[in-house]
């Protein structure tokens, strides 16, 4: 299940891109779900563990992936840690739902991410409430973040 803590969270990893740079392993990149996230968010194709084809930047290494996709892979590969997912744009939101359907993960958000119009199940740790739509989420999240 996906759980969110809104607002300042000192134990969360504020800079997930730096964590990724110093922690990722080859198999994080070649994992099937990682490849799908890279393809969807960065529009880039994983050629091999150390080479990714970006439509804008050309051949890049995993270190040059977007901050959003690095954060998604951090969350996927280190579910015991809490990352600042405000490093992710709204185009990462559906993948947070996918990850939350696969495993128990907790993220820290410092803004109101848009999870779209389909129903979902997310626990808001600040209040203990479970919300199923943006209509339910916004009034709760907006009390803790801007």
């Amino acid at each position: 299940m996906l759980s969110i803590y809104y607002g300042d969270m000192p134990e969360a990893i504020y800079n997930p891109a730096r964590f990724f740079k110093n922690s990722y392993k080859d198999d994080w990149i070649t994992d099937e779900l990682s490849k799908q996230m890279i393809k969807d968010v960065d529009k880039s194709e994983v050629i091999g563990a150390r080479v990714i084809d970006s439509p804008v930047l050309g051949g890049i290494s995993p270190r040059e992936l977007s901050g959003g996709v690095k954060t998604l892979i951090d969350i996927y590969k280190c579910p015991d840690k809490v990352f600042n997912a405000s490093a992710c744009g709204d185009n990462c939101a559906k993948w947070l739902i996918v990850l939350g359907n696969r495993m128990d993960i907790t993220i820290n958000l410092r803004h109101i991410m848009d999870f779209g119009e389909e129903s979902f199940t997310i626990k808001i740790l600040n209040t203990g409430q479970t919300v199923n739509s943006m209509d339910e989420m916004i009034p709760v999240a907006g009390m803790f973040v801007r």
């Binding site: 960065d42 977007s66 959003g68 744009g89 185009n91 990462c92």
Partner: peptide, 11 residues
């Protein structure tokens, strides 16, 4: 500057 991931902000 904000918005979606992979739009070139960090670049």
């Amino acid at each position: 500057i904000k918005g979606d991931s992979a739009t070139g902000k960090t670049t």
